[in-house]
Write a protein that binds this DNA or RNA. Structure first.
Lengths: 327, 327
DNA sequence: CTGAAAGCGCTTACAG
DNA sequence: CTGAAAGCGCTTACAG
């Protein structure tokens, strides 16, 4: 099935068929009808490989996600999709599971010209490796930001948000504040930890206990919290750098017989749905999830549609503290 | 950048370059080296569009997910990815949000020859429409099954699982069992509701209250449960057809001052992580999430790699009842 | 073991 | 308004 067959059936040239396919105005109504009839009769579908090879334009954006099961990632992707759709682009999602071999394989879609650009959410520490593969292709990094990096990025000021959380906890009288963090390969993990440390120092608090969750999952959050509860000196507050970890921690704290927030206050990060239905609901930092995705797409499209290289920009979007009953 | 340039630089023909690229054995070692050197020197990356156009084979599978934020879907996708990777296929994820226009757009990748086959998780009621677009392309439907359908499928026996849940609830002395269901456009919703109704009738229970959640989200689950609690005759047990809905219900029941399971027992479905960290943890039906995904891929590959049309098969995988403290 | 040539299915100047 | 022809970047018989 090809334009050839349509052309033959409609009694016109392939050029005319192509014009109809692309809705160019210069086709006589009569011919257009004949072509349309032939297309319908044969249920013809254009071969995208051929079209995109010819036009060197795909209208597709690659989004590499380290874990689609992470609700924060899912929320960002939602924003990405909306903005892409608005601009006539399609989104291809690749789940990398933070696996470099997989990322490399995904990125062949970029170097192989099957997509016009890529949005990543990887750890900053991976960026140099990715850079080698991505080269000069249009690229925006989401929710992870390094001021020194030459990669466009959209994120929030994680340090400031974490500092705000600690201040709130201290304000409410808490003195032994523990941190459940994740992988320090991520810049955001470093920044949130930095915010935590900054304000402990500022308030002259000596208690300073950090535990690192293996993965960004409920169960890892639970496990991390349990290990915290076993400490000789128990915390009276826990700041978890993601709502998912915090939700796991709620389980650990409650099932261990402590009450939230009286015995142990709990604050999460991200502002995803789960934070609203833990018992009690979680105080958290609301990230502008969808806006991060939207902004990433618009940055990416500006790169794609510009002929010359643009100056790197790093967007920091506003965040919001949401007070609920867990603190 | 193309094989032409590599050929010129290496001093061989494009045919030889292509042979090196595809690792064919018939290339003299010396020439191979020259080509490899040229590839490295120019950082050449083959154009996948051209290659796939020529070979009519992409090594890519499309997976259409109605909602990537749904942990059950994410778990199935994980299985899909593993099996695909094992067989040298790449996965492209499309998030349809159950939107038909989006699905149609995604499926252009199939008809446009950019992927070799598709795995869907859509409502059975959508299948006839999808069928029109997908036609005879390799296709497997996941976690949603209609014995009459001519589409290959992998799922579980939802009716039997739901019946088992109701029996367990009755066994524990519950008499007013409510159901939180989702969209009846899904076959699994119908089957689970059928199982619920079957066993109420069997046990001669007249209480029969069903509420439909707007979406498969925590908040919808909470909302649905709250409406149940407002009923003149309150339920003493709630069966939610997904753990996500059940987790939302846990919040509603607890915050309304009832204890679980004494006042109201709660059972979910799916067996995703969240079921382990609600307070109390959820009794649920464990689906063979990853296996569903794996099996779907192997069915799909058998279609792709077979020359003639295969007879339709509908796989039903085993499920498991997991007793926890919510019932 | 290698190269010249054809062709995958499109789009796009170009000439009319 | 239309068609013949070139070409996007590959791979693959075919002949040597």
């Amino acid at each position: 099935m090809s334009v050839q067959r349509i052309a033959k059936l409609a009694g016109v040239s392939v050029a005319t068929v192509s014009r109809v396919l692309n809705d160019l105005p210069s086709v006589k109504a009569q011919n257009k009808e004949k072509v349309l009839a032939a297309i319908a009769a044969l249920n013809y579908q254009p071969n995208l490989l051929a079209r995109q090879l010819r036009t060197a334009r795909t209208g597709m954006l690659l989004v590499m996600v380290s874990n689609i099961a992470n609700p924060f990632c899912a929320a960002v992707v939602k924003g990405v999709e909306k903005e892409a759709e608005k601009n006539g682009y399609r989104i291809l999602l690749c789940n990398t599971e933070s696996d470099f071999a997989r990322s490399r394989s995904c990125l062949q879609l970029l170097s192989g010209k099957m997509v016009d650009g890529v949005i990543t959410m990887d750890a900053v520490s991976e960026l140099p490796e990715l850079q080698k593969i991505i080269g000069a292709f249009p690229w925006v990094q989401c929710a992870e930001y390094d001021p020194e990096s030459s990669v466009f990025s959209v994120s929030i000021d994680d340090t400031a948000a974490a500092e705000f959380v600690i201040d709130k906890l201290v304000e409410s009288g808490k003195k032994r504040i523990a941190l459940i963090n994740h992988d320090l390969a991520y810049q955001y993990s470093q920044h949130r930890e930095q915010g935590y440390l900054n304000r402990l120092a500022h308030h002259g608090l000596s208690y300073r206990t950090i535990v690192y969750a293996d993965t960004l999952s409920y169960l890892s959050g639970k496990k991390a919290a349990l290990s915290l509860l076993k400490n000789a000196e128990r915390p009276d507050a826990i700041f978890a750098i993601s709502d998912v970890l915090a939700a796991g921690a709620v389980n650990a704290v409650t099932e261990s017989g402590f009450s939230i927030p009286q015995d142990i206050a709990l604050i999460g990060f991200d502002g995803v749905d789960i934070s609203q239905i833990t018992v009690p609901p979680l105080t958290t930092i609301q990230q502008p999830n969808e806006d991060i995705g939207r902004k990433a797409v618009s940055l990416l499209l500006s790169q794609i549609e510009s002929d010359n290289a643009l100056d790197v920009v790093h967007y920091l979007l506003p965040w919001q503290f949401i007070q609920r009953q867990s603190s």
